[in-house]
């Protein structure tokens, strides 16, 4: 069954707020509660991280979440079970964020068909650039899972090429470097978004370095939405199993800020 089109819903009613959660940090029960709290408090799309031993695109905060999740025994199969259960009541679009080897080693077809079966709408792989997307794209198309494209501050002459073939939504990386909170985002994102818009109708959300409502509002006003990871992982790091209520309140605040964006 194809899930294509569900991601579009996330962007249908104005600017989207997209939280990122590493599955299994500190345990899968907490992840389930955090996902529900985020969905209830206005998350438009939820990015679920499948932990990887060597997350080369992540800063220290999300690296820590990956280590905690793996130490707690999280596996790809257990993450699939988690989503299967969540889909009983959670209707918000969900995408996986992980690394190419997690998909490849599971057996790409097995991984992607399972995504489709359990209701995962898309796949974000930070180590799969445009040139290598044929590794998984045919299977993603076959099973109706959107393979999300990333565009970076250094993409320049590549923006149009990537945007033209983008599906689901475009993940615009706000800054050089790895994930993590930043006091200031200096990239000229408006001109990148302009090139994206000239080449596609696929919505575009900005991530990397966003933690405050002010930043989220600003990023959402430049694009179609804001993605936040490290700031949420920090709440999990601080509050552990009690994190769901804090994440819920944070998502509510951020969603309100994003809705203020014009």
């Amino acid at each position: 069954m194809s899930n294509t089109g569900r991601i579009a819903k996330a962007f249908a009613d104005g600017k989207a707020f997209i939280p990122f959660i590493t599955c299994g940090d500190p345990d899968l029960e907490t992840t389930a509660a955090v996902v529900r709290a985020a969905a209830e408090n206005g998350a438009d799309l939820i990015e679920l991280g499948i932990p990887f031993s060597d997350p080369t695109a992540e800063g220290p905060v999300i690296q820590g979440a990956n280590i905690r999740a793996l130490s707690a025994g999280t596996t790809t199969d257990k993450v699939f079970d988690l989503v299967r259960n969540l889909r009983g009541d959670v209707t918000v679009p969900m995408v996986f964020m992980t690394y190419a080897n997690v998909v490849f080693s599971y057996g790409a077809e097995c991984f992607i068909s399972t995504c489709s079966e359990i209701g995962v709408d898309g796949l974000i792989l930070p180590d799969l650039p445009f040139e290598e997307k044929d590794e998984f794209l045919p299977l993603c198309r076959q099973y109706g899972v959107d393979l999300i494209s990333l565009i970076a501050p250094t993409s320049e002459n590549r923006i149009a090429m990537i945007a033209k073939e983008a599906e689901g939504f475009i993940y615009l990386v706000s800054s050089l470097g790895v994930t993590g909170m930043r006091s200031e985002i200096k990239t000229d994102l408006a001109s990148i978004v302009e090139v994206i818009r000239q080449n596609t109708d696929t919505p575009c959300a900005i991530g990397f370095g966003i933690s405050t409502p002010e930043q989220a509002q600003k990023m959402a006003s430049l694009s179609d939405g804001a993605i936040v990871g490290s700031a949420i992982i920090r709440l999990l790091e601080q509050h552990g199993q009690n994190a769901p209520e804090y994440v819920g309140a944070y998502v509510r605040r951020m969603k309100n800020a994003v809705m203020q964006a014009d």
Binding site: T56, D127, P129, E131, S155, V173
Partner: peptide
């Protein structure tokens, strides 16, 4: 031409580094 040795090799890196390579 695309940096393959049989099935091996390739460029599995973040988009941020693509123009650099």
């Amino acid at each position: 031409p695309n940096g393959r040795f049989g099935i091996h090799g390739g460029q599995y890196i973040p988009e941020t580094l693509m123009n650099a390579v």
